[in-house]
Design a protein around this nucleic acid. Structure first.
Lengths: 288, 288
DNA sequence: CATGATTAATGCGTTTTATGCATTAGTTGA
DNA sequence: TCAACTAATGCATAAAACGCATTAATCATG
C-alpha cells in the first residue's frame, strides 16, 4: 500500500469517475483502474461498487474516505514539520500573529531574527478565525503570538509585555486626556471598532471595557484591520480604540490617548517542542 | 512512499542496526538499506546518520519516529474497522464489558445475538484500566458496557437497567435483611472487596456508600474479580458487596442481601457510527 | 429493439523498481 | 597492522507500474 494509492482513492472517492480522476492525477485510466484494484486486493476490502457506467463507494469505502482524508492531512503536516527540522536554520518557521503588533514588536523581532539567523525563512500568517491551539497542534503554525493567554496542557505560554489601550482620535479633536472626565461625554462620537458581537479576544476586551464604564459606543464602521482604522480616523470619519503599538505606524494627523486599561502580548508554542530551530527562535523572541 | 517503508523505518529506528532489523522484517540487508535510502531521497530528509559501524537517528528522524508510530497505529485500527464494515454480518464486532455482568445480562445478550446473527464473531474484552472513551475512539472496542455513565460529545450512551447492590454473605451467616439495623454492626466482619483507593467506578461507589453510612470496612482481601470473591465468601473467609447480577453465578452456600443502593448498566458506542452491523448489534442489546 | 456513445476492465509490450547474492569499503577493537 | 563487523553498491533477475489498444458492459437515443 502506497500513500499515492490512498491519494488516488481519495480523488476517485470525490469524483466517482475513473477517466476524470485519471486526468486529475496525471495517469492513464487503465493505471488508475489497476491501482485501485490492487489496493482492494491487498486490503481484502471492496472500496467501490462499479460497472461500466456507475462508480459508487461501498460503506467501507465511505468510512475509509473519511478517515484516510484525516490521515493524509496529518501525514502531510508531519512531513512538512520533519522537513523543517531537517533544514534547521536554513529552513523555515511559521509564525502567526495578531494585527496589532504589525507596527512595533513584530518588525523589531523580525529584524533581530534576520540578523541572527539570516538563512531562516519566516512564514507569517494573521489568522482570522482559527484558534491558536488548533493551529499549533496541527503544525500549521510553530509560534503563535496572541493577545489572550492560552491555557492548554500541551501548549507553553509566556507573557512578553503589557501596553495600554488608547483612544485614537484625529489631531485636532477636542478630546485629550485631561478633558476626558466621563465616557458618556463620547456618546455623540462616531466609533470605528471591531464588531462587538465577535468572538475575538479584542472584541471581548472592548465589550468588557465599555460595560465597566457603563457606556455604549455609536459604531458606524466595523473593522478589525488597524491600518484601515487609522486611516479612517486621520480622515476624521470617527474615533477608535486600539493598543498603543499602533502608534508606531506613524499615521499622520492621529493622536493616541492612553486609557487606564492594559492589554498583553503572549508567545505560545507546543510543549516539548523537539525542533531546535523553533526553540532558538523562541529564545530570540525573549530578547526583544 | 509505502506503508511498508515506514514500518521498516520504525523497526530500524528501534534497533539502530541494519542487519538485525533486516532479519526482523524478513528482507535482506541490502534491500533494507536501499528502501531506507529511497525513503530519504523521496522526502528530501535525512533520517539516519550512519557509517559502517554506527546508526543514529537525526532530529528529523526522531520526530518522524514519534509521529509515524502514532500514524501507523491509527492506520492499522482504521483498516481493521474498514474490514469489519466490509465483512458486515459475517465479520466481527468488539465488545468490552465489566466483570459484573458476566453471569446474567451478557450471556443472555450473546445468546440473542448468536440466534439472530449466527455468522457474526464477537470479541469480548474486560478492560482493567483503559477508559472506555479511548477504547471506543481508538476502535479497540465497538461497544462498551459500563457501570458508570459516560459524558462525552462523541459517544452515545443508553442506560439499560438498574439493579441493587447486595451484601454477599455465607449461607449460615447470622446476618439477614431484617437483622441489619446499622452498618456498624458489621465492624467486626472481614470484607473481601475492591481496593477502595482504586479509580474504578465500583471502588468509587463503595467509598461513597461507606461514607454515607459512616462506616469503615475491615478489608482483609482486595480483589476486583467477582468469581474469586464469591468463592472466598462461600468458604466463609469473609463477606463482600457486589451487584445482584452475580447471584446468577449460582455459587453454592452464598446469600445475597439487597441494600438500598442501586447500580446501573450503560451501553456506549461511537456517535454517528457508520458500521451497520454495530448498529444492528446495538438494536439487539436493547431487546434483551 | 438495434445501434452508437461512454467508460471500467483487460491483454500485451515496455519501462521502472525491488530484490538478494556477492562484493566493496569504511570503522573500529585487539 | 589486521581481522571482524557492517552499511553501501554492482549486477542479474523477478516483479510491478505504466500506457496503448482493445474488449465488454451499460445505458440513451432514434
Amino acid at each position: 500500500m502506497t500513500v499515492q494509492q490512498i491519494k488516488y482513492f481519495l480523488e476517485l472517492a470525490n469524483e466517482l469517475h475513473f477517466w476524470k480522476t485519471a486526468e486529475k492525477v496525471f495517469v492513464s485510466q487503465s493505471t488508475l483502474s489497476r491501482q485501485i484494484r490492487s489496493l482492494e486486493d491487498e486490503m481484502g476490502i471492496q472500496l467501490f461498487e462499479r460497472d461500466k457506467r456507475n462508480v459508487k463507494l461501498t460503506d467501507a469505502g465511505k468510512f475509509l474516505k473519511e478517515h484516510w482524508s484525516t490521515t493524509i492531512k496529518e501525514l502531510d503536516q508531519i512531513h512538512r514539520q520533519a522537513k523543517k527540522i531537517d533544514e534547521g536554520m536554513s529552513g523555515f518557521v511559521s509564525i502567526s500573529y495578531p494585527g496589532s503588533i504589525t507596527f512595533r514588536f513584530l518588525p523589531k523581532f523580525l529584524e533581530t531574527l534576520n540578523s541572527n539567523l539570516p538563512d531562516l525563512k519566516v512564514e507569517l500568517t494573521e489568522p482570522t478565525d482559527e484558534n491558536h491551539e488548533k493551529l499549533l497542534s496541527d503544525y500549521r503554525t510553530d509560534i503563535a503570538f496572541s493577545r489572550d493567554e492560552i491555557s492548554n496542557a500541551s501548549i507553553d505560554s509566556l507573557k512578553l509585555f503589557s501596553e495600554p489601550i488608547c483612544l485614537v482620535v484625529p489631531n485636532n479633536h477636542w478630546l485629550n486626556k485631561k478633558s476626558l472626565k466621563d465616557f458618556n461625554e463620547l456618546q455623540d462620537e462616531k466609533f470605528i471598532i471591531s464588531g462587538l458581537h465577535q468572538k475575538t479576544f479584542f472584541a471581548s476586551l472592548l465589550r468588557n471595557f465599555f460595560n465597566k464604564h457603563g457606556f455604549e459606543p455609536k459604531t458606524i464602521i466595523e473593522s478589525d484591520f488597524g491600518g484601515m482604522i487609522l486611516n479612517l480616523v486621520s480622515k476624521e470619519i470617527g474615533i477608535s480604540i486600539l493598543p498603543l503599538s499602533f502608534k508606531s505606524a506613524k499615521v499622520p494627523d492621529v493622536r493616541f490617548i492612553e486609557l487606564d486599561e492594559e492589554i498583553d502580548l503572549y508567545i505560545n508554542w507546543r510543549k516539548n517542542e523537539p525542533n531546535k530551530t523553533i526553540k532558538k527562535v523562541i529564545e530570540y523572541v525573549k530578547l526583544v
